[in-house]
């Protein structure tokens, strides 16, 4: 099975990236191409979406916000996922690169959460008549944002790198469990208190019933946002690797 999926050839090379030197070499090679590809995909996707798609019959031109809202929400969740995986690998394998990937991922994910929330609010005002409703989806995104803030704040609070790596990883894992729990609790809560709200009627911008005119540019801008995330992740991780090396060198200088 492993061979069929090509995993036999993938994982050994993947884990080699945990060596900082290998990571720096490979990421340095990839980065210019990634940046170019990001600009290309994001540019085409958004220009296509903004200039070349028709207005929706019901939503008018606000439908164009979807090319920002859905991709950023997608990255916001996956950014947390990357963070959790990096933390898990750090706790199990003790290789610094993985926890630095997690560290670099958090601010990007946080920004994407803000983008998703604001674009959603801007879209919600004309469509739902309000910037904010305590709909389960919206609420869980706000909670996700709170978890990001806590994680970033903990990184900023402690000097000792190994210690803070352990602590933030523990927080990321426990946070993930509670984030999922909150997602379901919130579902329960809204049902319990506001039965039969009509908010979800306006949720017509569902991926399943979206026509292909809107879907193709959306797909392209989703790929673009994904590449943007990857690019920033590599840049951030490279910086953190260098920062760690810098800290070691400065520590040595102090010893002398």
């Amino acid at each position: 099975m492993r061979t069929i999926l090509g995993m036999k050839y993938f994982w050994p090379y993947f884990w080699k990236l945990a060596n900082p030197k290998v990571f720096m070499r490979w990421s340095g090679l990839c980065l210019p191409w990634l940046i170019a590809l990001t600009v290309l995909c994001l540019g085409t996707g958004l220009i296509w979406g903004f200039f070349l798609t028709p207005d929706d019959a019901r939503q008018g031109s606000t439908v164009k916000i979807i090319y920002l809202h859905v991709p950023s929400a997608f990255i916001a969740i996956n950014g947390y996922f990357v963070m959790v995986l990096g933390s898990l690998f750090w706790l199990v394998r003790r290789q610094h690169v993985s926890v630095l990937v997690a560290k670099a991922s958090a601010p990007i994910g946080m920004t994407m959460t803000v983008i998703a929330l604001t674009t959603g609010a801007i879209w919600g005002q004309p469509m739902w008549g309000t910037y904010w409703v305590w709909d389960p989806r919206l609420t869980s995104f706000l909670i996700l944002f709170l978890f990001y803030i806590g994680y970033v704040a903990l990184w900023a609070a402690i000097e000792n790198q190994d210690k803070v790596a352990d602590l933030t990883s523990v927080l990321a894992l426990v946070g993930a469990v509670f984030a999922v729990l909150s997602r379901y609790a919130v579902l329960f809560w809204n049902q319990g208190l506001h039965q039969g709200t009509t908010v979800t009627v306006a949720d017509g911008v569902n991926q399943k019933n979206i026509s292909s005119i809107f879907f193709q540019p959306l797909l392209l801008s989703m790929i673009g946002f994904g590449l943007l995330f990857l690019t920033l992740l590599l840049v951030g991780t490279r910086t953190e690797i260098r920062a760690q090396r810098l800290q070691v060198l400065e520590g040595l200088e102090k010893l002398k």
Partner: peptide
Amino acid sequence: LGKYAVEVASAYSITFLLIVII
């Protein structure tokens, strides 16, 4: 952009601003 010009424009500009900032 019809009557929603302000909304769409502000959504795009805020997003661009945030991406540029980060």
